[in-house]
Design a binder for these strands. Structure first.
Lengths: 111, 111
DNA sequence: TTCTTATACGTAGAATATCAAGGTATGGTT
DNA sequence: AACCATACCTTGATATTCTACGTATAAGAA
């Protein structure tokens, strides 16, 4: 529900964070995000897949097809070492930007 | 110094916040941002002006030329009512997204 | 005087990104 | 059979960023 700019800023760190907790696939990542955000973030698949492809192209995640018997094919993504580093950087960036905005907005530490 | 995605997400709320504290002009906004962020954010002018123009086109800010004697011309921007509302929305969005990431990352309230 | 730096605004264009809309296919349920 | 959920993908319109460039004046240094 957030604005475009903010949406764009959160897709990458959110995906990397979810993958840092274990391999996962596109469709399920969408469900995870919805659950984690308490329904606030409802990603469409058409929005997610291009981002996953880009992250893979950039070397932050890797993929493998897994086909279970009597199940659908799934493309599982894993975070790479480069991806872990990237996540760390994104995290630091986010925290310092939040710190700046927090000061500007005079937010209490609890928010 | 932050990533492109995060930069994009902060320009709008930062500009609106600065203007909500009083009218200001492009060149000085860049200095303000640098000061506020302790040098972390160093915006270029070529990056800021298009954003200001867009915000004005969208009705969130308004502008007026001011020429002081023995001084340069300056284009002062003011936040509009619509801009104040927009800032409020952006603020809420930011706070709720931060809350989601904070939980995911297990950050302490002080961060 | 002339050069440089700081102030102050702007645009063009390449590169990048978003996101809705549409497409394919299988499994399970009614 | 019909329908929904699962699961992946691409295209194309639109928007956005940001580098690089251009214009101009004032102040201070060489």
């Amino acid at each position: 529900m957030a604005s475009k700019g903010l949406m764009a800023a959160t897709t990458k760190p959110l995906i990397l964070t979810i993958l840092s907790e274990g391999k996962n696939y596109g469709y399920n990542i969408i469900q995870q995000v919805k659950k984690i955000s308490d329904g606030q973030l409802q990603w469409s698949d058409g929005m997610l897949y291009p981002v996953l492809h880009r992250l893979e192209k950039d070397g932050f995640i890797s993929s493998e097809w897994i086909i279970t018997t009597s199940d659908r094919r799934r493309k599982y993504y894993s975070i790479t070492e480069a991806g872990k580093k990237e996540l760390h950087v994104e995290r630091e960036d986010w925290i310092s930007l939040h710190s700046i905005l927090k000061n500007l907005w005079g937010l209490k530490p609890t928010t």
